[in-house]
């Protein structure tokens, strides 16, 4: 486990209501810059709910269950570890919980770094990490019936 660097800015948000990722990004950027000393590279990922279930049926909503307390702590630990591995500056992870409708944003990851390589790699790696190691469970609602999703979608 890498030693957390207190100068590394890690922001973790679990959101119970629909959010506008670009507004979230703007607020995050305002919270620590930009200044002349801001990192030169910033990479973003926005994930949205697709309109069909894994079985190809029309999706009414995706329900996100989590483990309050552990999910936040685990997201923070994953972000800290990823930031330390890549030597990046600031990381934002915002993730929806509860009922999310098709087209709505479900996850936002943003990373600031000195170079594009670490910024891009850290976003991709952190996204894969949280899909497999942060306690979230998806249930697809279609035709009034809920089905727990057994695994992650392909990369």
């Amino acid at each position: 486990m890498p030693t957390p660097n207190p100068e590394r800015l890690i922001a973790v948000q679990l959101l119970e209501a629909p959010f506008e990722p670009l507004e979230g990004l703007a607020a995050w950027q305002r919270s620590h810059g930009p200044t002349a000393a801001s990192p030169a590279a910033e990479s973003h990922f926005i994930g949205r709910v697709r309109p069909t279930t894994a079985a190809g049926e029309p999706l009414e909503a995706l329900e996100l269950e989590h483990y309050p307390g552990m999910t936040e702590a685990q997201l923070r630990a994953l972000a800290e570890a990823c930031a330390a591995r890549h030597g990046v500056g600031a990381v934002l992870v915002a993730h929806r919980v509860g009922r999310v409708r098709p087209g709505e944003a479900i996850v936002l990851v943003a990373v600031q770094a000195d170079r594009r390589g670490p910024a891009l790699r850290c976003v991709q790696e952190l996204l894969e990490d949280l899909k497999h190691h942060a306690p979230f469970w998806k249930r697809e609602w279609s035709g009034g019936r809920g089905t727990w999703v057994a695994g992650n979608t392909p990369l």
């Binding site: 702590a73 949280l130 899909k131 190691h133 942060a134 306690p135 469970w137 695994g151």
Partner: peptide, 26 residues
């Protein structure tokens, strides 16, 4: 206690132990 652990870890009174089905986040 809200941290991943192996299934053979001895438990102490007061512990919170959770069983987590396969994770599907993101």
């Amino acid at each position: 206690n809200q941290a991943f652990a192996t299934a053979d870890t001895p438990l102490s009174p007061g512990d919170e132990v959770a069983f987590l089905p396969p994770i599907t986040g993101g």
